[in-house]
Computed example of a mutant assay.
Amino acid sequence: MDMKKQIAEGKGFIAALDQSGGSTPKALRGYGVEDHEWSGDDEMFGKIHEMRSRIITSPCFSNGKVIGAILFEKTMDGKVDGKTTPQALIDRGIVPFIKIDKGLEDEGFGGFGGVQLMKPMPDLDALLKRAKGLGVFGTKERSVINEANAEGIAAIVKQQFEIGMQVLRHGLVPMLEPEYSIKAQGRAEGEKILKDEILKLLPTVPEGEQIMLKLSIPVEANLYAELIEHPKVLAVVALSGGYSTEEACEKLAKNKGMIASFSRGLLQDLRAQQSDDEFDGTLSAAIDQIHAASVA
């Protein structure tokens, strides 16, 4: 599989299976696994890995509509069908990515208002080397914008590109995710600032290299067309950002060339208690819906 070509030209979307420690209990509760059913981090991550394995091994997951999947570090290091998770994905024609950020600083950290920068990643080089050795294609790193603060947005984008350059040096493709909160006031104005800041730094991407962008679905449809068409951008993907599957798909379909990278939108109706047929049918319906919006 030519993974770069698949992401650039594939008619599908990227599944986000990267809930980390802080968001895992909520994800498990949504899946129908209550807090009393596990004890400690090992059991918690075991439960979430069971869910992800069930998704990855579902026949509908490898029907060509899911072109990539973002993994949490522990999922990357785990096994599916007796293989490393990245290899299990590759064998199904799905490009593996790894979430690398370690969570968010408090808003206002560093003197930048209205944004949450990424926490330090002191072991990032070792993680990137391990991911590359496991066949991972790219990374994803998230920070959050909560208001249209030009200085804060510039700081967010600068940090994203700095981490992105480190990822590129390891032969991986970074997916920069400066998420714009869908609850933020003045989002339309702030998203234009965000686009301009990204355009300022795209020329710093080394010749022959490309990055990816994971952005909130913009208030103004097709706002990111210039980014989608930029030669330094391999793909622009959309996060669901708290929208329901229906809302996210409706909004995404209005943005030409932007494909989905949904978590909640993909997983919201899956339950541990479902039979295999019920689980596969529910997952298949979500995949079909998200795929249709991505290729609209």
Rank of each mutant, 00 (worst) to 15 (best):
T57G: 04
D35F: 15
P86W: 02
G138M: 04
E209P: 06
R169A: 14
Q19V: 04
T84R: 00
E209D: 14
L223R: 02
D18F: 01
D276C: 12
S143Y: 00
R169P: 03
I48S: 12
G133D: 08
D125S: 10
A188R: 14
E189G: 14
P231G: 01
D18S: 02
K140T: 11
R29Q: 15
S23K: 06
G103K: 05
K74S: 12
G190K: 05
G138L: 01
Q289T: 11
H230I: 09
D276S: 11
A285W: 11
A235L: 10
G32Y: 09
A285Q: 13
K158A: 15
T204S: 15
G93V: 03
Y243P: 05
L227K: 02
F13H: 09
A286Q: 06
K256N: 12
Y224I: 04
P59L: 08
D288N: 13
G64H: 12
I156L: 09
G114A: 04
I217T: 13
G110M: 13
K79H: 05
Q289C: 12
A253Y: 09
E37P: 05
A248C: 13
S244M: 10
G152C: 04
A286S: 13
I259Y: 04
I228F: 09
G152P: 02
G114E: 01
R54Y: 07
K200T: 12
V237F: 08
A88D: 03
L201I: 12
Q268S: 13
F13A: 03
S284I: 08
K5F: 12
R271P: 05
G78I: 03
G190M: 02
